[in-house]
Write a protein that binds this DNA or RNA. Structure first.
Lengths: 234, 234
DNA sequence: GGGATGGGTTGAGCCAGCGCAAACTTCCGC
DNA sequence: GCGGAAGTTTGCGCTGGCTCAACCCATCCC
């Protein structure tokens, strides 16, 4: 159980309003764990033994339906908390968390939550804000799924991924972790075939550049326009 | 500003872990307001001046897109909090709240939130739990929209409405507030035409009985089966 | 009681995107 | 360097559900 340097996480919104002594006390209860790419951090339905903070890498949260279909709920970026089921008093994890790339996380045992929150009320309000943001994002997704065509949804998804986890490269903005057509299909409620067709079209048009589990937005503004415009302006 | 009887709300999850004196202190800051059917409690984009608790009636939360389409996010049942933007530090309401039926709400000024939470930390954890539940519900909806056919989604929606706001009547379970085909369409991401066709079919089959803004589930279990079964078992 | 308004029903045609199928490419382990 | 697995591309046919359109019915207000 390595000790974590407070400076690594001091500026995160999760720890806003806490002194560095308080932060140190909180971090003392966490252990840092490394998850290689494609390994599971936790699994849907499993007892929620811990809650997490992502230090580096990327983690995919996905849900599996009764009929076996997978839906990707979100990608966790470094600095975000995840697996916070204990904070909502959920006894089990509602989704599966998988390392989309080699990742390092901080993990606190669930039992620590009530104690920490009692001692540091800022944690509760910070978490409330984080969950609130996530609720808004989820609402946005419901609205998109209800009102937009597939192409628009894919565009929105790429824009969001680029904003959240984009890395500037010479030729544009690259999504900073391996992501397949299938993953995007599971984020947008379509099939990998349709995603492939759409991305091929965009590549043809010079909007993107892509390869195996790799996407570079060459013209982010034009993708953004696609995302925002009404379908019949196309 | 009427004084509110603590006994009305003492058992709500929102106030779990608070003594009746503490509860009285919290309620002292709220005023109770009546909203007639179809009136707006607050409007999307408006400054979040208050947060609310529904005492009686039903409130519909809906979002409007840039292109003018409406999506119904949820129906608030008595005892639930809503418009809790202030708790998430959202400066504006992300949705519009409309009384689906004559309703009575408790309203607290936003400014009261930080003060109340500081004094009564249980409020923060209770709210966290409420928001967490809502996040799960929203996730469920994303999954349904991603993986289910329209008929299944409508079935799921009716089952949920019946559970949340169903009233037992001789012939089955009636949704306890006026709800139109259009409303259901906006909850399921389809058109009122398609909803009308589906409900007509079910009425034909004796599964439901319906009229103007009124739906009675005559065979709730069979609707439930429709909601759960894979489309090709139909 | 007549007109208007809001909600509901039903028909006909069309197309976005799915399902199925086959082939290709890249990566990785041995 | 070979074989297999995983990811991607592309063609083709079909269909669920949308669009457009017309009409009906109940309720409410003069």
């Amino acid at each position: 159980m390595a000790t974590v340097d407070t400076s690594l996480v001091a500026d995160l919104p999760m720890f806003a309003g806490l002194s560095s002594e308080e932060l140190a006390e909180i971090l003392r209860e966490a252990r840092s764990v490394r998850y290689p790419r494609n390994s599971e951090v936790f699994s849907q339905g499993e007892d929620a033994h811990s809650f997490f903070l992502l230090l580096s890498g990327h983690v995919r949260a996905s849900k599996t339906t009764l009929t076996g279909e997978q839906v990707v709920m979100r990608y966790v970026a470094p600095g975000e908390i995840f697996g916070v089921a204990p904070a909502m008093r959920l006894p089990q994890y509602p989704a599966t968390a998988t390392a989309a790339d080699d990742s390092v996380v901080l993990a606190w045992p669930s039992a620590a939550w009530p104690r920490l929150v009692a001692k540091f009320p800022a944690l509760a309000t910070n978490t409330l804000q984080a969950i609130g943001t996530r609720l808004q994002e989820s609402f946005t997704r419901v609205v998109e799924m209800s009102t937009e065509q597939v192409e628009q949804r894919v565009a929105h998804t790429l824009v969001r991924l680029a904003r959240q986890s984009g890395r500037k490269v010479e030729r544009g903005i690259e999504i900073d972790f391996p992501i397949s057509r299938q993953d995007i299909a599971q984020m947008t409620g379509t099939t990998l075939h349709t995603v492939s067709r759409i991305l091929s079209g965009w590549e043809q048009a010079g909007l993107i550049e892509s390869g195996r589990q790799r996407i570079v937005l060459r013209e982010p503004e034009r993708i953004f326009e696609l995302a925002e415009q009404a379908p019949d302006e196309a």
